[in-house]
Structure formats: C-alpha cells, structure tokens
C-alpha cells in the first residue's frame, strides 16, 4: 500500500537496494601502493569507498557500480580493474 503523500517512514531503506551487481569491471585497491590521499574517496559518486579501522581505504562491493572513476583519478595507479565473472 502506498502511504499518504508517498512518504517513506523507514529511515535508510535505500541500503537494501544493492547495486554491486551492475558492475562489468571490479576496481581493486592495492593498499601497498595507496598513499591515503583520499582522492578516490572524494570522487566516488556512490560513497562506496570507506576507511577501515586500520585507516586503509576499502571498496564496498555491495554498492560499487564499477564506474572506475576511482581508478582513473588515483595518482599512484593503486586501483586497477578486473573483469567481473558472471
């Protein structure tokens, strides 16, 4: 049933909509080469790059759509791409 005014009362319900399956290419972040400049984190249009507890940058593959902007922007070429196998 549609609510009055099509209002959504469940906060953060968009997280259920996982977009990782859209990828043709998967970006792989090499933490050895990463200088933690945060450029990939800033440029990711999906907010799918995050910093883990050890302060390493990681990619959340549940939501990464494989646009590869991170790979294009990385100044040390730490992010490479591999074909998704489906």
């Amino acid at each position: 049933m549609v609510t009055i005014g099509a209002i959504i009362y469940e906060p953060g319900s968009t997280v259920r909509n996982k977009t990782g399956g859209w990828r043709t290419f998967r970006p792989i972040l090499n933490t050895e080469k990463c200088i933690k400049c945060e450029i990939c984190y800033i440029f990711c249009p999906e907010g799918a790059i995050y910093e883990d507890e050890e302060e390493n940058f990681r990619i959340n593959y549940d939501y990464c759509k494989g646009c590869l902007i991170c790979s294009k922007e990385c100044p040390t070429n730490a992010i490479t791409r591999v074909r998704e196998e489906k």
């Binding site: 009055i4 005014g5 099509a6 209002i7 959504i8 009362y9 906060p11 953060g12 319900s13």
Partner: peptide, 14 residues
C-alpha cells in the same frame, strides 16, 4: 504524516 523530526527521519517527495 509529514513532519521534521531528527529522531524519526522520513523521506518526503520520493
């Protein structure tokens, strides 16, 4: 149905 309350966040105009 339509209000602003940080403790009960909702999405309007989706």
């Amino acid at each position: 149905h339509a209000y602003l309350d940080p403790d009960r966040p909702i999405t309007q105009g989706p």
